[in-house]
Design a protein around this nucleic acid. Structure first.
Length: 196
DNA sequence: CTAGTGATCCGCT
DNA sequence: GCGGATCACTAGA
């Protein structure tokens, strides 16, 4: 997995689908990701290094966690693309285990609401600044188990929440086509199907 | 649909 | 050093 992330952030974003995010009793299957890379105005690594995004230059496979909109933490996996800083945003997951812990952290009961968005997922897993810039593969307090085999069907769409003029059309949002009920929001009508 | 939230950034004193 | 704009979102009408 780290080898893929080091090579190509788009491939990395697809390869992370089907992976398992783990913390304590909590386990969840990653069903939605987005890719961001250095040359893309929507990427936090665009322009020059800033205080909050130092982790983007740490190492492929590390976490990049940041805070936005006054409320929300986001979990990213650091990657490289042609040697330049890049990242994969983990946007949604299917709860597998430790649901009671997730419910307690989120303050909601509905299983569909636990992890169906990047801010929700981070809150359910109790992810905050202390998880920034840490390895995510291998056993840690928070880690990701890569999928044993790539998932069979990936659907693609434009990324969410990117302002006009900042790469909003770039189709770098990837979802597990067989688990659409767990994604953060529906894909727009015309989508392309590709292989993982 | 819109309000809320607060750290960070950038351009100007 | 200051202040407004921005922001990879969510909850609730």
């Amino acid at each position: 997995m780290i080898e893929i992330l080091r090579e190509d952030v788009v491939e990395g974003a697809k390869a992370l689908l089907g992976g398992t995010l783990v913390r304590g009793p909590m386990r969840a299957r990653i069903v939605e990701t987005e890719a961001y890379h250095f040359d893309d105005p929507g990427c936090h690594a665009y322009g020059r290094a800033k205080m909050k995004n130092m982790a983007l230059w740490s190492a492929p496979g590390n976490s990049y966690v940041y805070f936005t909109y006054g409320n929300h933490w986001m979990l990213n996996v650091v990657a490289l693309d042609e040697g330049l800083a890049a990242a994969v945003l983990i946007r949604a997951a299917e709860p597998l285990a430790g649901l009671d812990q997730m419910r307690a952290n989120r303050g909601v009961d509905d299983v569909r609401q636990l992890l169906s968005g990047p801010g929700k997922l981070a809150k359910a897993f109790g992810i905050d600044a202390k998880f920034n810039d840490r390895p995510l593969f291998g056993r840690q307090e928070l880690f990701i188990i890569p999928p044993e085999v790539p998932i069979p069907h990936v659907e693609v769409g434009p990324r969410i929440g990117i302002a006009v003029g900042k790469g909003h059309e770039t189709p770098w949002r990837f979802v597990d086509a067989d688990r659409l009920e767990w994604i953060s929001r529906p894909l727009p009508p015309h989508l392309r199907r590709t292989r993982a």
